[in-house]
């Protein structure tokens, strides 16, 4: 073990600690010049952990899927009516299905119910992970040239989710296929985009389309036309 009492060590330390007078002004000016033309790197889809489903969870999911199919099938069974057949109810205009389902994306439970189209979206997305969750009031959608479907809006509730605080913007991006792939997108930097569509524009401008970040979902999501 060396100690500063050792003469050799003392000489070495004295030499190491010798004062010199660096003038950092030149290098600082160069840095500030370079920074003027250097954009910051903003990763807006965090490196999520993926938690693979265990066998028990898969069985539950499979059983739930069977129940859903059974319930849907029941709705289409012919009903017996009185004389003259069942009463006719005038169809009310219903919003177009955009995306709906209960599934896992990037390891998190998602309950999604979105309807509408380019002119506007209604519905919500609830994302849960153990002790944290957030809810998005969905507002807008876009299908990009890369074929990705963006659905986003305002985070209206958030508990312990630092990437999606209340008042921020968030989206889920889908890619059709078997299985469907998805990724969450958060506006992690201020200022908040002026509108929901501007949020998509800003995210794509900063990081491009998140094609490389997409992961297969577990479960089912029904995507509209």
């Amino acid at each position: 073990m060396t100690t500063e009492r050792d003469p050799g060590t003392r000489i070495v330390l004295s030499w190491l600690r010798e004062e010199t007078h660096e003038n950092a002004e030149r290098v600082l000016l160069r840095v500030l010049d370079e920074v003027d033309t250097t954009p910051q790197r903003r990763s807006w889809w965090p490196a999520w952990r993926t938690s693979p489903m265990n066998t028990y969870a898969k069985l539950i999911a499979a059983a739930a899927a069977v129940l859903v199919v059974a319930a849907v099938g029941y709705q289409f069974l012919p009903r017996s009516g009185g004389i003259g057949g069942p009463p006719t109810i005038a169809p009310s205009p219903s919003p177009t299905l955009l995306a709906a389902g209960t599934f896992r994306a990037q390891g998190f439970e998602v309950v999604l119910d979105a309807a509408g189209g380019a002119s506007g979206v209604t519905g919500s997305m609830i994302v849960t992970d153990r002790s944290r969750n957030f809810t998005v009031d969905l507002e807008c959608t876009r299908t990009t040239d890369a074929g990705l479907i963006w659905i986003g809006g305002d985070v209206t509730e958030s508990a312990n989710w630092s990437d999606a605080p209340k008042g921020s913007r968030a989206a889920i991006v889908f890619k059709r296929g078997t299985p469907v792939q998805a990724v969450f997108v958060f506006q992690m930097a201020e200022p908040r985009s002026a509108s929901c569509q501007a949020f998509f524009d800003d995210m794509i401008a900063i990081g491009g389309e998140p094609v490389g970040a997409l992961v297969p979902i577990i479960g089912t999501v029904e995507l509209g036309p």
């Binding site: 660096e22 950092a24 600082l28 840095v31 250097t38 910051q40 790197r41």
Partner: peptide
């Protein structure tokens, strides 16, 4: 600059290293 000059023993290299580090800080700070 003081630290990099002591590690690299060359003021030009130290200035380049300092510049590189500060720009990297700006770029990766988010």
């Amino acid at each position: 600059l003081a630290v990099s000059r002591r590690i690299l023993r060359d003021i030009d290299l130290a200035e380049d290293a300092t510049q590189q580090a500060l720009v990297a800080i700006w770029r990766d700070l988010p």
